[in-house]
């Protein structure tokens, strides 16, 4: 089974900033990591490979530094990795990103399964996974929490939905996005780290990919960010102390009147 895992390099969640002019994330000087939710996708892929054989390829679109994320994926056990990188891809929204990644998947070719993260912690749209599936015209299953079986070129899995789990059977090739519940990600191994250090990661760009120029980057993106606001962090709320029994009673009194005034109780 040949599995491709698209992973995104994202800023550490605790210290991200936005450029108020362009509405894009300022990446300079911020520590980056593999999107934490993509680690579950990598783990799922590696487990499937252990059970059914095959290979796992990590795929990332981003600036040249995104190689770091790919090396981390290799250190975890991926067989190889591909970087999709070109100035012309800059400023892509989810439509253009999923187009470019889908073209990269086609260039890799001959895959059985694509496993993406549920969403990226910076863009936070959860749109790129289904978008890639749509460009490739393959079936998609999102929010996958458990894989039941993989046999006869079909995968049966459980999707976490609003009031339970939907059990779905999909023919391969298909794409799924996974939630945290599916598996706890492994740590990189020493052997993996050594392999990662030595591995040369190929770069796909406008030079060597088949691409429609009008569908790329900021220009090719249907959505435009027009404004960025920073909402106020504090709500100017009230904090009361409930140190002893008496204070607990009066604090709760106050809470109940507050909730009453808000029409909750």
């Amino acid at each position: 089974m040949k599995i491709i895992v698209p992973i995104k390099q994202v800023p550490e969640t605790s210290n991200v900033k936005m450029d108020p002019e362009t509405g894009t994330v300022i990446r300079a000087g911020v520590e980056t990591v593999v999107n934490p939710l993509d680690l579950y996708a990598l783990e799922t892929a590696l487990r499937l490979k252990e059970q059914h054989g095959g290979t796992v390829t990590a795929l990332s679109m981003g600036p040249p530094q995104a190689v770091k994320a790919l090396k981390e994926a290799v250190a975890m056990g991926c067989d190889d990795a591909v970087l999709v990188s070109d100035r012309k891809f800059g400023g892509s929204d989810t439509w253009a990103t999923s187009y470019t990644l889908a073209q990269a998947v086609k260039k890799i070719g001959d895959y059985d399964l694509i496993i993406a993260g549920e969403r990226a912690t910076d863009g936070d749209t959860a749109q790129v996974g289904p978008g890639i599936a749509s460009w490739l015209d393959i079936p998609v299953a999102t929010y996958v929490a458990r894989i039941e079986t993989v046999k006869d070129k079909h995968i049966v899995l459980e999707r976490l939905v609003e009031d339970g789990y939907q059990i779905l059977s999909l023919p391969l090739p298909c794409l799924m996005t996974v939630v945290k519940e599916i598996a706890a990600p492994r740590l990189p191994t020493l052997g993996g780290k050594i392999r990662a250090r030595e591995l040369t990661i190929p770069v796909f760009s406008t030079e060597n990919m088949e691409l429609e120029p009008a569908a790329l980057g900021l220009k090719g993106s249907p959505t435009k960010v027009v404004k960025i606001d920073t909402p106020k962090v504090t709500r100017g709320g009230k904090v009361v102390r409930a140190g002893d029994d008496e204070a607990v009673v009066s604090a709760v009194d106050e809470l109940m009147s507050f909730l009453e005034a808000k029409g909750i109780v």
Binding site: G237, K238, V239, V240, R241, A247, A251, L255, M256
Partner: peptide, 29 residues
Amino acid sequence: DPDASLHKVADFGIVGDAFQVVPEIQRRM
């Protein structure tokens, strides 16, 4: 913890022991 970040974004915060405060809210409810 009076310095808990959740208090900072809350509309209403109670600095107190959950095992005292929650049963009290429960009684009212």
